[in-house]
């Protein structure tokens, strides 16, 4: 067991020669002894947000922009089992007002993907597990300027996929996301109608769900998707208050994704927009990734 874990670490940390076409939310796998390294750049910004359910703007924030760069590695342990690791460097900025933007490495995430019911075409079923943990001691409750919420998380996801011989596919997935309590710098905070005389803050657990339809062939992938995210508990932003990690955040989002990888080198791009939400910003998200595939990483 330990040796195997060490091997995981070795494979994921020492990036020998690697490729990524795959994500923790798709049915794509790296072959055995292959890897993909990727560098993903993302920009997410909003001008309107939902204060509880009231959609508003804030002239003392203007547009809130979150930019990140994430190096990522995906490794095919076997053709049925893949591991992904990534950690983003995040920078936040408000276009108006005087709140100081924050920067830093955020949370290291590790994902394991396993084919429960394999199929080249037709129906396949996948179990996906992920954990994440902050790797720097960033301030988690200076929202919306914080680079993250500082919570350790564990995600259990089940994903079903149907793919035709022509390469058309439909994917549906749902996840349970357990999020650990966080410790903040202050020794009291007001949440859920109560003053909590402690520095420990509950970050609510959440569930997500997604459906994707697209087309996948050797070099190309194109997809439309719809995702939803819902905290299972939490409180609501009060009138003219700032958001807090305790909030019951929820949103639905529509997006499009393309990937082009003619040989070892490839690109992917994504655009998504939050359609509706509560206690979140109405973000528009763009991301661009550079991919590099490596074969036969263990000789």
């Amino acid at each position: 067991m330990r040796r195997k874990l060490l091997l995981f670490c070795f494979l994921t940390l020492s990036v020998l020669r690697v490729s990524v076409g795959q994500m923790p939310h798709d049915a794509i796998y790296m072959g055995k002894n292959t890897a993909c390294i990727a560098i993903m750049g993302e920009q997410s910004s909003w001008t309107k947000y939902w204060e509880n359910s009231l959609k508003r703007e804030n002239l003392n924030i203007g547009t809130l922009t979150v930019r990140s760069v994430m190096p990522m590695v995906a490794v095919g342990i076997t053709k049925k089992l893949n591991v992904l690791v990534g950690v983003p460097y995040v920078k936040t900025e408000a276009s108006a007002g005087n709140l100081l933007g924050q920067t830093g490495f955020q949370d290291l995430a590790l994902w394991v993907k396993y084919k429960l019911i394999p199929a080249k075409t037709g129906f396949s079923l996948h179990a996906i597990g992920g954990v994440s943990t902050p790797i720097t001691n960033y301030v988690p409750d200076f929202l919306p300027l914080s680079i993250g919420m500082g919570s350790r998380t564990a995600t259990a996801r089940i994903l079903a996929n149907y793919k035709t011989k022509m390469g058309l596919y439909a994917t549906a997935s749902t996840s349970y996301i357990a999020r650990a309590n966080v410790n903040v710098d202050r020794d009291a905070y007001f949440s859920s109608g109560q003053l909590h005389n402690t520095n420990e803050v509950v970050v609510p657990n959440a569930m997500d769900a997604a459906v994707r339809i697209g087309w996948l062939e050797k070099k190309w992938q194109a997809e439309l998707n719809y995702e939803s995210f819902n905290c299972l508990s939490g409180d609501y932003i009060r009138r003219n208050d700032m958001p807090y990690p305790t909030n019951k955040m929820s949103m639905s989002m529509a997006g499009a994704y393309v990937k082009f990888q003619p040989k070892n080198i490839g690109f992917n791009a994504r655009i998504s927009k939050v359609l509706n939400g509560q206690n979140v910003g109405q973000s528009t998200i763009y991301s661009l990734g550079l991919l590099y595939q490596l074969n036969n990483i263990i000789e």
């Binding site: 195997k4 564990a154 357990a178 650990a180 420990e200």
Partner: peptide, 19 residues
């Protein structure tokens, strides 16, 4: 292994959400 890793992870996160 996969099961164990996931189990350990979920335990570490201690999802009781109580303070």
């Amino acid at each position: 292994y996969f099961g164990l890793i996931l189990f350990t992870a979920l335990t570490l996160v201690s999802c009781d959400n109580q303070i």
